[in-house]
């Protein structure tokens, strides 16, 4: 088992998904495999999830982190997702986004509560370390809240 998995009492649980209209999944497949190989449990969905479906899924699977892949313009829906997660009492769940997300939109996403935006070429170690760190944060917040 890797260090990532050993540090926490159970493997981080991460939802890897896509919202909106686009269906390109090369990136999300690769990231899901990265996270699995780092000892995490990845819940993987088909693209085009409705926001309410992502919220329901996050509740039922008790995930620590949600990773949203966006290669077209679907990142524009992320502020709505953040609001819906908050309303459902999932404020502790950390959210990262990755894919083709214009620089100029990044600040807006971070303001909406997205914890991190990854761009093409983001190193594997960075993705794994960030998700692992955010998962630990999510658990701590949830336990202390």
């Amino acid at each position: 088992m890797t260090d990532t998995a050993k540090r926490t009492s159970r493997p981080p649980r991460v939802l890897v998904t896509k919202i909106g209209l686009d269906g390109h999944d090369r990136g999300s497949r690769i990231v899901a495999a990265y996270l699995r190989d780092a000892g995490m449990e990845v819940i993987y969905t088909a693209p085009w999830q409705k926001i309410e479906a992502v919220v329901k899924l996050a509740v039922e699977e008790d995930v620590d982190v949600i990773g949203v892949s966006s290669l077209a313009t679907d990142h524009l829906l992320l502020p709505d997702l953040m609001a819906a997660l908050g309303a459902a009492g999932l404020g502790h769940v950390r959210v990262v986004a990755g894919g083709i997300i214009p620089d100029g939109d990044e600040a807006e996403l971070l303001r909406a509560g997205v914890n991190r935006v990854f761009h093409p070429g983001s190193p594997r170690e960075d993705i794994v370390a960030t998700v692992s760190h955010l998962a630990a944060q999510a658990r701590a917040t949830c336990a202390n809240g």
Binding site: M1, T2, A5, P11, A32, A33, L35, R36, D37, A38, G39, M40, E41, V42, I43, Y44, T45, A46, L57
Partner: peptide, 10 residues
């Protein structure tokens, strides 16, 4: 790795 990809919800 001890990790898993859980894809049944697809």
């Amino acid at each position: 790795s001890g990790g898993a990809i859980l894809g049944d919800r697809i």
